[in-house]
Write a protein that binds this DNA or RNA. Structure first.
Lengths: 344, 344
DNA sequence: CTGAAAGCGCTTACAG
DNA sequence: CTGAAAGCGCTTACAG
């Protein structure tokens, strides 16, 4: 009886046994050939026969069986807080590219805080994982991850985290420092900070760098800090609060492009021109920042490079090497949303 | 020797055998208890002992072994063309929620055309999959998927596709019909269509509906169709071409919010007011549509519901039932980017 | 109510 | 150069 047919008539998936039978060799030979471990152990002619049989049957190795046997899966989990952000999409793309180069696959896990509903990234990753690459996680989500006992590389996160094999960060502090220097150089002295209402390293870093740089300039001060959820609406409400305060700030330094877009809307509603009456800065350089008018002065983060470097570090850790951390450079992109403060 | 310690000192993951040993029962009992199949077969006291042992050891079943044994994984692949879009993020969220309700997990595969590099969604899904849910795929990507031989449910795609067990669509034609009716009612007669440069059902549907509805009104015509890649920049260039044509259209009907945002920028560059000189419509109702000024008249798609319904259809197909297709209603959201055409 | 045993599909150390 | 056999960790039909 043909093992590729079942009682119900549903064609069963061919196994390496089927391939072996068709090629007239043992299962072992099939495995050797298909895994490219045959050189000097199987004759070239036989190897070709095996490949042909596999092709003819449409054979695909059962990955569950392979994983079980090998004890590893050549699969990494990439955890991101939000799917709908270009930044994380690029991080993923970079990580997946490097993983593929090394014969690794990648499973994406959008963490619950961002979007998904699954409470446990390990409950249903479809199989065992070899390692985890996690980006920009808030503290609680991070703790859940550390519990997995897998090699973990963090992106855009606390550098000294003891649970991580390595950390790959953009130079957030430098990005905010450049932003602050840019508006201070333009002459601004009354700054407001529109801060993301998220407890994570990356946003603490922004707040600290802004405070430090502002303190270096005599007469300059952060006259107001408004926390906002990461949405246009959140930025709008926070900016309205900041812009109706007395004295009114002359620049809104925002933790994220999406908040800055909200700030532009707030200014317009209040009849303030940007940058004539008030300047606005963003952070991330997403497509949003050039979608609006005026286009946003913002900080470009090396998203793809972070995914790539992070995956390299994870693969190194999986080989048992000490994974190198990294701090990647960022760039300030000056656009039309910033200018000199109004006279007086 | 303790099986949870290895020569190297690395703690091995505990297995069901370890749990059985600690609880003083057989491996079979462990499996029965942890899979909740013990009622009437194992005494409650023993069941509790097993659960305690599992907890104490931090036991997690090896999913590769379970999958191999069961021949299925309770895992579906969700394929989306782009990660950085709220629409697909919501589709994913809906699908994952319904899957979780049924004890299914979900693995995300951003198809290469959108963003990712992996050429074969099946090469590295980390294990076998039970089924596939694919959204808005262009024709070639779709063909690759059909080859998997897995139950396939399509979202936002050709309804009659023979490879799919079911198709769940938003009522795209109705959305574009309402958009066209809205601008025709306002008095517009010279329409331009900013069409997405993507060969897929959803965009063909938009073009057809727009043409049909326009043809119903005497004197109205699509005076120009411009194809554009799906980006702000693409929309900008296409809109500049359309707006410098003679006669100039009085409204730009765009296939997507991102194109409409580009159209707003083009109008501004040409010194045209929106909607005073030219009206603009979008499609999708993403956050972009309210980020810009004026805010976009657009069509809201039931993204989350599509993910939910799609996953329900896939789970039905996996149970061997005939999966119901569905067409979900959409809504026109009129905002400030549309108004009456200029006099003359 | 409980346990011993078989087997899912694969890979690899070993024997020839 | 090739094959027979063991075993990865789990689940389930079967025997007691």
């Amino acid at each position: 009886m043909n093992s590729s047919a079942q009682p119900g008539g549903v064609p069963a998936r061919p196994t390496s046994r089927d391939v072996a039978e068709r090629a007239g060799v043992s299962q072992a030979t099939v495995s050797l050939v298909l895994r490219e471990r045959w050189q000097g152990r199987v004759s070239p002619a036989r190897a070709e026969t095996v490949r042909e049989a596999a092709r003819a049957l449409g054979y695909r190795p059962n990955l569950a069986a392979r994983s079980l046997r090998l004890g590893r899966t050549r699969t990494a989990l990439v955890v991101v807080p939000a799917l709908s952000s270009e930044f994380f999409a690029k991080v993923y793309a970079g990580a997946a590219r490097v993983a593929a180069e090394h014969g690794f696959g990648v499973v994406l896990y959008p963490s619950p805080e961002g979007i998904g509903p699954a409470p446990d990234p390990f409950a249903h990753s479809s199989a065992t994982l070899d390692g985890v690459l996690a980006a920009s996680m808030a503290a609680p989500a991070l703790r859940a991850l550390s519990g997995g006992g897998l090699p973990l590389v963090m992106l855009d996160s606390e550098p000294q985290d003891p649970g991580a094999a390595a950390t790959v960060n953009p130079d957030i502090a430098d990005g905010m420092r450049r932003t602050a220097a840019h508006v201070l150089d333009l002459g601004h002295r009354r700054l407001a900070h529109l801060a993301a209402d998220v407890d994570s390293w990356t946003f603490r870093e922004r707040a600290d760098a802004l405070a430090r740089e502002t303190a270096r300039v005599p007469g300059a001060a952060i006259v107001r800090t408004e926390r906002a959820p990461l949405s246009v609406r959140g930025g709008l409400a926070a900016a309205e609060r900041a812009l109706t305060a007395d004295p009114r700030p002359t620049v809104l330094v925002c933790d994220d492009d999406v908040l800055a877009v909200g700030a532009l809307k707030a200014a317009r509603r209040l009849g303030l021109r940007v940058p004539g009456d008030v300047s606005v800065t963003g952070f991330d350089d997403t497509e949003l920042s050039t979608a609006v008018e005026p286009e946003l002065t913002t900080v470009r983060l090396p998203a793809t490079a972070m995914g790539e470097e992070g995956m390299r570090a994870l693969l190194a850790a999986l080989r048992g090497e000490t994974a190198p951390g990294a701090v990647l450079p960022v760039a300030l992109i000056p656009r039309a949303s910033t200018g000199p403060p109004p006279a007086g």
